[in-house]
Design a protein around this nucleic acid. Sequence first.
DNA 1: AGGCCTTTGAAGCAG
DNA 2: CTGCTTCAAAGGCCT
Length: 426
Amino acid sequence: MPQLNSGGGDDLGANDEMLAFKDEGEQEEKIQANVFTEGDLADLKSSLVNESESTGGGGGGEGGGGGGGTGSSSTTSSQTSNAAATVATTAVAHSEAIRRLQDPQRVYQEKLPDHMEDGLKHQDPGMYKGSSYSGYPFLMLSDAYLPNGSMSPLSNKVPVVQPSHGVHPLTPLIPYSNEHFSHGSHSPHLPADINQKQGVHRPSQTSDISGFYSLPPSGVGQITPSMGWQSQPVCPFQSCGFRQPYTSALTAGASFSRITHPLMLGSGMHTTGIPHPGITSPSGKQEFDHYDRSMKSQPEPKREKEAKKPTIKKPLNAFMLYMKEMRGTVIAECTLKESAAINQILGRRWHALSREEQAKYYELARKERQLHMQLYPGWSARDNYGKKKRRTREKQQDSNSDPASPKKCRARFGLNQQMDWCGPCR
DNA sequence: AGGCCTTTGAAGCAG
DNA sequence: CTGCTTCAAAGGCCT
């Protein structure tokens, strides 16, 4: 993948990742060869997946990289086929983003009045909505996207993977933005069933906007969950119904080019006043509820606020970004809700992705890490060690000793509680 | 209420 | 350097 050839100027740790990706890709080829031949995977769910993928892809049809009739990787093809249309439909938004991008100062000037007036005035709603990562400054990405989709020579030398299937190249926007649409009820332009019609069903993710998109009572806190950005037309394509036009990140990046360490702002607030998605309460729960209360002018006692030190979460890796984006699609296609089962499907799809498709997520993940490093220079993954109570190793071994327990079987295949065993596990 | 399950990848740590 | 462990997201399930 030519655009991944970051060896040149990227000094922010691309090399090791590229190696990893290369290895991954090599493995992937092998996996792709047999991913669809695994008899164990020819269970009910996988057949369901294959079915849904082959029919729901919106013109897909290449059948999963040589997977033949049983291929389940039409995700790639559908995504790819969606790309052109997505580009077309988001062209307006892109041009707007670019325009703003070229004049960040004006954007900044425009923005505040926009919010203060009302939320419906957002011709560029993605500016905030998009992302929980609005908190991210997007420092080096702003000029990465040109009208022709090519890289700007000034774009920090980071090879940006093109959004070939309508995915925002800087995923923060996507994975964190999709949840916005779960608040369909808030959006006058987004009928509650639109997601389902488009094959994207996001049940009960309403609370999730919280963490990643929670907006502060200050700064741009004027943006309420019902504000205009949620009225942004949803991408009409099945696999990206929740995606946002590039505008959000780009403009955000263009507008907020200064970083203040969020910790200096108290409780995870970025300079923009937007809490970083990775910042959560000590409880581990992302604090949308908390924030929501604040939005309702019911501030918590200061003591309590002070007592809650923000937890900076790890940046998402490539697969996590992919999961966040595709979860809704899988849920819709497979009518599954259990994350364990969904994640298994997503894991398989991940391996079925082409190198190019995966490369996009690796690239996005790399950017995430870069931003995370810039935002939290002193942060270490070790900081969060022990904050989650995880099963003991001993326990894990026990479970491994019984890989086909009914419980695991149910989780794996999303079976009902009544079904103790499924075929492949029997 | 909170841990488990399940996935992949990144990071930290011990040897 | 290698291998192991933990965490990141998600939401139903389970204790």
